[in-house]
């Protein structure tokens, strides 16, 4: 997630997808991969390269859950809300984290350190409830320990 991505990246992304039909979503994945979200200017620029109206880009970005319009915090905490995780206490985990961080799911802390979000089933139901912190997966999490576990993951990062 490079913050210092620039126009050169955009041109590369556009070049990679320009000749493939219907590649807008793939190009947006690449864009978000570089920036961590889809900045408005970048979307506009990408649209020019791909010859896609901004209207179409926003229709798509706001339809799909995966795309973010604002820069998330440094650490992304995702609480799985699949059925197994839900039954095994994911709501309590969300509540605990939300309480501790002072933000609701889908929000970023004011100091931009943490972004708390709910995610759809990540397919690890056997390990429910599951929380991911950036790339790290925490399995069989208990609401009582979750805050410490999350902090442990982000220490030094």
């Amino acid at each position: 997630m490079a913050a210092a991505a620039g126009p050169a990246d955009l041109a590369t992304i556009a070049k990679k997808w320009k000749d493939k039909r219907g590649s807008l979503i793939m190009a947006l994945h690449d864009l978000q991969g570089r920036y961590g979200y889809v900045p408005r200017d970048a979307a506009q620029e990408l649209g020019k390269h791909l010859d896609v109206p901004l209207a179409r880009i926003y229709e798509v970005i706001t339809f799909y859950n995966y795309f973010k319009l604002e820069a998330p915090g440094k650490h992304i905490i995702s609480v799985c809300m699949g059925t197994a995780c839900y039954l095994k206490g994911a709501p309590e985990i969300i509540a605990k984290l939300s309480d501790k961080l002072g933000v609701k799911a889908g929000e970023t802390t004011p100091d931009k350190q943490f972004h708390l979000q709910q995610v759809r089933c990540i397919g690890c139901c056997g390990l429910a409830p599951v929380v991911t912190v950036n790339e790290k997966v925490l399995a069989k999490v208990k609401a009582a320990d979750v805050v410490d576990q999350v902090y442990a993951c982000t220490k030094g990062a």
Binding site: R21, G22, I25, R56, E59, Y64, N65
Partner: peptide, 21 residues
């Protein structure tokens, strides 16, 4: 790649998504 939409499991929605819509 999908982008986080359950409805895209429906075949016509999936096709729309592949078309970049």
């Amino acid at each position: 790649l999908g982008a986080g939409a359950f409805v895209c499991g429906e075949e016509t929605a999936l096709i729309a998504s592949i078309e970049g819509l």
